[in-house]
């Protein structure tokens, strides 16, 4: 396991995943709605960095998150850091127990319509990977 203090800053070209734990967030054509990208209840949006993880390790983290809260894992939404940055958002490493690759997307506007607009654009650039 990596040391929390040694996690490098998040690079522009890193891949990030948002785990999808609710079926209604996925459209019939396997694209994603804006809904899973609305930052609530925190001002930040939780994502997991792909950094140093292979596909199996990434799914292990996702399954572990789902298991801990008793939810079904439907898949993950992948985006590059640059996608978030293009909306004046910042991605910061925020390791947590069980997921040293955890990161937060910060800098969201406080108004809901502005959040929705950004979420819709991020969703349109996302790649959904089904579990």
């Amino acid at each position: 396991m990596k040391n929390t203090d040694t996690m490098p800053p998040v690079a522009d070209d890193e891949l990030l995943s948002r785990f999808v734990l609710h079926k209604s967030h996925i459209r019939h054509d396997q694209t994603l709605k804006a809904d899973p990208f609305i930052p609530h209840p925190h001002a930040d949006l939780s994502v997991t960095r792909h950094l140093g993880l292979d596909d199996n390790a990434l799914w292990d983290i996702a399954e572990n998150v789902a298991r801990q809260i008793g939810k079904t894992l439907y898949g993950r939404a992948e985006n590059h850091t640059a996608t978030y940055q293009s909306h004046q958002l910042t991605v910061v490493a925020a390791p947590v127990p069980g997921n040293q690759n955890h990161a937060n997307v910060t800098g969201w506007p406080s108004e809901k319509p502005a959040q929705k607009m950004i979420a819709l654009q991020i969703a349109s650039n996302s790649r959904f990977v089904s579990r």
Partner: peptide, 23 residues
């Protein structure tokens, strides 16, 4: 299409493509 957001709002989406959508 119907859904929900993490702040407890219910969502309604009219969708033609990822770049032609109303939420």
């Amino acid at each position: 299409g119907l859904g929900a957001e993490a702040d407890g709002h219910l969502t309604m989406e009219w969708y033609r493509s990822p770049h032609r959508t109303l939420s």
